[in-house]
Design a protein around this nucleic acid. Structure first.
Length: 425
DNA sequence: TCTGGGGTCCTAGGACCC
DNA sequence: TCTGGGGTCCTAGGACCC
């Protein structure tokens, strides 16, 4: 059996831990740039605010009465680590699936004790972090997702729901569950399934798996098997290094200024370089993308991207920045107001495969060595003294492209200076 | 005025090879 | 005059996740 542990309204719950006055109020957390609502309290959901709703399109009454906060990823990331540390006490096998969800394997545990373990787990997480979580227990990940949803929405389960594959209760639940509510089935697939007369999770479970594979893909066929209780989905280990690294942001306001895009691309490339070195990889190519705002009707639109190969695999921010700048000059066009740019590192290889250029290997080795020491020093300073202590020729603040995050709460768990701002009433 | 930022996997189709 | 078929690799795009 496997347990899916999922924090309820995670970002909102994190905010409430440090601001109890938010309990009972409609609270939302916004995406970067205060663009869309990406987390909602029950009260805000009850007001009809959809996941991903653009903030500026919310009805005025809701914007007035709801508490809408900028996202505070430093806080959420730290709270997430705390939750996972607790989960690790319950099982040696914890797969961190996302910032607010983990799969905890109970394979080999006494089956009759699982619900009690689930309850104990909820209590521990609540006691030590203040966060409410729900637990879904099932033989497969897809069913564990279904169980978790039931644990959240059906009060009788008290936060822990167990679904055995061939239990009549499981069947009843799946018969009521729209197929689009399943993990891995979204709008496109559910629309096509509806044409075949498959509307519920149970109908999908009973469908001919070979036909599903032919009509759709191996992905949906695996979901069929998982619904029947046979594990078919293997998760990529989230602690594995990423296969590509993307850093991109929308600008605080549109800009057509080339130097502002250059500054943003430098910042993104530098940040991507940090991520690359943290996972001890080298990039063999850099992609740069720019784009105007597709939502502004009547405005000239432009989007483009370009991949620039590196002469040799590298994790040196200076090289990444130089290549990214070349990429930007290849695609930058005057006369547009840009909304977003990004840098992606591609073709990543393990840093052990650092190779020397063919000519003058001795000098390259010395250069490599200097580069590695320099980057390590930069990373250490930024880690210990705060992000952006050392920068690569960046303006300090107030750039046109700086993020808007006016409603961000304090980073209580990672910044002493901000902790002092906590009100004690 | 204001519409996120990451990721993954799979498949189809083209280029190329023998 | 007749111009195959099977394989691999790569890329772009679709679909999905949180």
């Amino acid at each position: 059996m496997i347990a899916l542990v999922d924090c309820n309204n995670f970002y909102v719950s994190c905010e409430r831990v440090f601001a109890p006055r938010l309990e009972g109020l409609p609270v939302g957390v916004l995406s970067n740039n205060d663009g869309c609502v990406v987390a909602r309290s029950q009260e805000l959901k009850a007001l009809g605010v959809a996941m991903g709703a653009p903030m500026h399109l919310l009805p005025p009454a809701i914007r007035r009465h709801a508490v809408l906060l900028s996202s505070n990823y430093a806080l959420y990331g730290d709270m997430s680590r705390r939750v996972n540390a607790i989960l690790a006490e319950f099982s040696p096998d914890v797969e961190v699936y996302s910032i607010d969800e983990s799969f905890v394997s109970f394979v080999g545990f006494d089956a009759s004790t699982l619900e009690a373990r689930g309850q104990r787990l909820r209590e521990m997480v609540c006691r030590d972090t203040g966060l409410p979580v729900c637990v879904g227990l099932a033989p497969t990940r897809v069913l564990a997702k279904v169980a978790n949803r039931a644990a959240k929405t059906i009060a009788a389960y008290a936060g822990v729901c167990r679904l055995d594959a061939d239990d009549p209760a499981t069947r009843a639940l799946l018969q009521r569950l729209p197929v689009a509510a399943l993990w891995g089935v979204a709008r496109r697939t559910s629309e096509r399934l509806a044409l075949m007369g498959i509307d519920t999770a149970w109908q999908l479970r009973e469908a001919d798996s070979k036909l599903i594979r032919r009509t759709f893909s191996v992905v949906l066929e695996r979901i069929v098997w998982e619904l029947r209780g046979h594990s078919a989905i293997v998760l990529e280990d989230m602690s594995e290094p990423r296969q590509r690294i993307m850093v991109s942001r929308s600008f605080g306001r549109l800009t057509g200024e080339r130097h502002e895009l250059e500054a943003a691309v430098r910042q993104h490339a530098a940040r991507a370089g940090e991520k690359l070195r943290r996972q001890r990889h080298l990039a063999r190519a850099v992609m740069v993308m720019v784009r105007t705002n597709p939502f502004v009707a009547g405005e000239a639109q432009y989007r483009n991207s370009v991949v620039v190969p590196l002469v040799r695999p590298s994790d040196d921010s200076r090289e990444l920045l130089a290549v990214a700048r070349r990429g930007l000059s290849a695609i930058f066009r005057d006369g547009y107001r840009y909304q977003k740019c990004g840098v992606m590192l591609l073709d990543l290889v393990d840093a052990q495969h650092r190779q020397l250029t063919l000519y003058d290997a001795a000098q390259s080795e010395a250069e490599n060595d200097r580069s590695q020491r320099l980057m390590a020093a930069v990373d250490r300073l930024n880690r210990e003294m705060g992000r952006d202590t050392v920068r690569f020729c960046l303006p300090r603040d107030n750039s046109a492209w700086a993020l808007r995050c006016e409603r961000r709460s304090s980073r209580y768990t990672t910044r002493w200076d901000e902790l002092m701002k906590v009100k004690t009433r």
